[in-house]
Computed example of a mutant assay.
Amino acid sequence: MADIYLKKNEERRIEAGHLWVFSNEVLKTEGEAVNGDLCQVYSSSGKFLGTGVWNRNSLICVRILSREKIEDIREFLRERILSAAGLRSRIYTGRSAYRLLFGESDGLPGLVADRYNDSYILQIHSSGMEALKDVITGVLRDELQAKHILTRHDMYFRKLEGLSEEDEILLGTPEKEVITIEGVKYQIDFRDSQKTGFFLDQAANRIYASRFTGGGSVLDLFCNSGGFGLHALKAGAREAVFSDISETALAAVRRNYELNGFSAGAEYIPGDAFMVLKELHQNGRSFDLVVTDPPAFVKSRKRIQEGVKGYLTINALALKLVKKGGFYATASCSHHITREVFLETIHKAALKAGRELKLLHFAGAGEDHPVLPAMPETEYLKFGVFAVL
């Protein structure tokens, strides 16, 4: 096991609770440092800081796992996974679909795991977790009775870590699961779904937004599996319009609509969101509730300005479709977009659209995506509901 020594004063952020060591913070290494192996981290004066996993190919060269020395990595992983599972079982009584592991926030940097009944989907973003995936699979199988496990990696982060850009089945033959979240059923098809199968981070926000349906019409933009629109229908909306650039996503929405036995009106519009919004406006369409849940427009700091411009445009277009006295819900899943920038952008979009807004509700991701206070990187989702005047 290699020993990693940090430059003078570089230990301060680690001692404050952050879990990443960057390559430019390392003074020296002692012993053989193999990518994916455990290492021990020390300050320049020799103070032990923690045990982590090493990757010389990454800007984040060490991800801290523990403030103590790890004697048995399998037992360590078992305890961390069971601790995370216990927390979710207390939060979600009777629910069998949630984010089981949220990387750094659950003390397992570089590892995300979503549960769908007896099926689990992993995202592995670090060489250390890649090296331990067989151990992780064993813990999920033996301790949580997982029957099916597959990976659905975020290839952007895999590339940054120098990892292979291929998914694999680790256990069983995962195909489909039907989950229920607050009375709404979803069919998850692991063969063609996006990312980890379902965007669980918005589960609570979909339920909250449905309060503003009022028996009216709803536009669910960037709808993916249709969560916002389906919950609105469950709450009594008379009509939901679903739009996504992916035909596969819209086919999934149709299946979910039928699965729930809804009888209210439903319309499915494929296409680029910017063009769809322009066409709806040109056709004189308007809605009591409009929801925009776009993908991350900003993947890195250097693209913040470009991303803000995209958020400004899409929100201005969407706000034009909200009826006077209606409601607008919008989100950003870009970590680099702060709450302040997010709200300022929505305000500017309202001015551009000639609308006046009142913020009624602001939230982040659900409780299965806990935030580590020392790591702002773990707080990425911004979600707001506005009254439109």
Rank of each mutant, 00 (worst) to 15 (best):
A2W: 03
A2L: 03
D3H: 11
E11Q: 12
E15Q: 15
A16P: 02
W20A: 02
V21D: 07
G36K: 07
S43R: 10
G50M: 10
G50P: 09
T51N: 04
C61Q: 10
R63G: 11
L65I: 08
E68H: 13
E75G: 14
F76A: 05
I81L: 10
S89E: 15
Y98N: 05
R99E: 10
S105Y: 10
D106C: 07
L111N: 03
V112K: 02
V112M: 07
Q123N: 15
S127G: 03
K133A: 09
D142G: 01
D142A: 08
E143D: 14
K147G: 06
L150S: 01
T151F: 00
D154G: 08
F157V: 12
E161R: 10
D167W: 00
E168R: 00
P174D: 04
E175S: 14
E182Q: 14
V184H: 02
K185F: 02
D189H: 04
D189E: 08
T196K: 04
F198I: 06
N205R: 02
I207R: 11
T213G: 09
V218W: 03
D220N: 12
F222M: 07
F228Q: 05
H231K: 04
L233R: 10
K234A: 14
A235I: 06
R238S: 15
S243R: 01
I245G: 12
T248W: 02
A252V: 03
Y257R: 03
L259A: 01
P270L: 00
E279I: 08
L280F: 12
Q282T: 08
R285D: 11
F287M: 03
F287I: 00
V291I: 15
D293R: 02
K302W: 05
K302L: 10
Y311G: 03
L319M: 13
G325V: 02
Y328H: 06
A329F: 14
H336K: 06
I337D: 12
T338H: 01
L343D: 05
A349L: 10
L351I: 12
L359R: 11
A363F: 12
E367Q: 14
E367D: 13
A374D: 02
L381Y: 00
F383K: 06
